[in-house]
């Protein structure tokens, strides 16, 4: 039994998965993670996953983008080489709005997505760490660390009770390296 690393409860329905989480938690069985083919609303609260701080990151990138955009315009148009173009002022603030705005949006989008990719270790060519290949298709998976939770039979019966179609005992953490 010690060779088993993870126990996977495979559900065909998201509501049964939620039920499974409730049942496991009521029995003090810790859940490693869940893998689903679509976002399940409310699952974070159940698993105690804290709200994402990405909006804060996005806001900071927005401030950075706006500042950089304005600095670019100020430096080029007003400081470095002010030019008399049709008698227009060297600091034409209304004319600065479009480019400052576009820079804000661009840096917000790129910065936020880069943060998302960095925090979730997403990048081109990364080996996918998948525990069950059907988790991106039609199965909703609850993964339980087999070493932390000793009573495997109880876990299986709880999962089955909640409606799991299949319970797997994986000796490897990820199946996708094969």
């Amino acid at each position: 039994m010690s060779k088993i690393k993870y126990i996977l409860g495979s559900f065909a329905d998201p509501d049964e998965l939620m039920d499974g989480i409730d049942k496991l938690q009521a029995n003090n069985i810790s859940i490693y993670d869940c893998f689903t083919p679509m976002p399940i609303h409310g699952i974070e609260a159940k698993l105690g996953v804290r709200p994402s701080r990405l909006p804060i990151a996005a806001f900071c990138f927005g401030l950075l983008g706006g500042t950089l955009g304005f600095c670019l315009l100020y430096y080029t148009m007003t400081y470095d080489w002010p030019m008399n173009i049709g008698g227009k002022p060297a600091l034409p603030l209304p004319n600065f709005v479009p480019v400052t705005f576009e820079c804000t949006i661009l840096i917000t989008a790129l910065g936020m997505v880069a943060t998302f990719f960095y925090r979730n270790h997403l990048f081109p060519g990364r080996a996918p760490r998948v525990m069950d290949l059907r988790a991106t298709d039609d199965r909703f998976i609850i993964a339980i660390d087999a070493n932390d939770n000793a009573d495997h039979e109880r876990i299986e019966s709880l999962l089955k009770e909640a409606g799991a179609v299949e319970v797997k005992y994986n000796e490897r953490k990820y199946v996708s390296y094969e």
Partner: peptide, 16 residues
């Protein structure tokens, strides 16, 4: 990009 559909990934995905 190594997508695996874990809870945290989906949560951040939706925010993004």
């Amino acid at each position: 990009f190594g997508w695996n559909g874990s809870v945290k990934t989906w949560q951040r995905f939706e925010i993004v």
